[in-house]
Write a protein that binds this DNA or RNA. Structure first.
Lengths: 122, 122
DNA sequence: TTGACATATTCCTATATAGGAATATAATTT
DNA sequence: AAATTATATTCCTATATAGGAATATGTCAA
């Protein structure tokens, strides 16, 4: 049941490295499928498929002009990911690194004191 | 070849909703497998498997004490995701929304002027 | 040692999907 | 209309899992 449920949300869309590359390339300007696939060294069908996924989750828009299809970035959906990860920001700051050792020290101390009741959750 | 290559990087690890829930729960405190699985309503084997993935990408650490295994958040790996998405921040700000319509106006104008050479990339 | 408890692993199955090859579709040019 | 160009889709295959069931492993307690 590989990656069930939310099988196509933004988190999944950007889990694929090639799709991240595509989004990065689209920062500069809107691009045709051909330009993207050539620029990134991807096969055209593969590129089209990735773009389809990105479109489905709303990370890109298409603008058809003649036989070209210009894909344009719509990065608003990435905000969710940015904010979710941002919720962990305090855990990777320098301040935390210093606090961590101290906190762990405390935890070890408490445990030595026999604070088992609150330590083991279930 | 589902999700080839980087089959287990941080982006993939957090693509799974249950794993995101686990990480969120670990913000509060380190937790045993039992506490996590009970708290989130996950089966124990499923929980263990998710924790294994999170461990492999370095998002959690384990501390074995007796027959309990306390999993502890190590969110530093999320920084990469936060920064990558942060590179798109200017595309979802209010300022951008206002600029966007103007920029598109310009693009359309250029195209009308016959700027085809630089417009179509390949 | 035996039993209870906590967690990990194995086996199985269903499904998702990345990518290649071939083909379909659509618009443009000649 | 026929050929060309740009892109999408289909068909196929290999692989990656998510999750359930059963079992193995490890640790503590009696």
């Amino acid at each position: 049941m590989a990656r069930a449920a939310t099988t196509s949300d933004v988190f999944n869309a950007i889990a694929e490295p090639q799709r991240r590359r595509i989004l990065t390339v689209l920062k500069d300007r809107e691009q045709t499928v051909g330009a993207i696939s050539e620029g990134l060294g991807l096969a055209q069908p593969a590129t089209s498929k990735h773009l389809k996924v990105l479109k489905e989750v709303g990370l890109v828009d298409v603008d058809t002009r003649g036989r070209h299809r210009f894909y344009r970035l719509d990065a608003r959906g990435l905000r969710e990911v940015h904010e979710w990860t941002g919720g962990f920001e305090r855990f990777w700051g320098e301040a935390f690194d210093r606090l961590e050792s101290y906190a762990q020290e405390l935890q070890r101390k408490e445990r030595r004191d026999g604070t088992t009741r609150d330590d083991i959750r279930p």
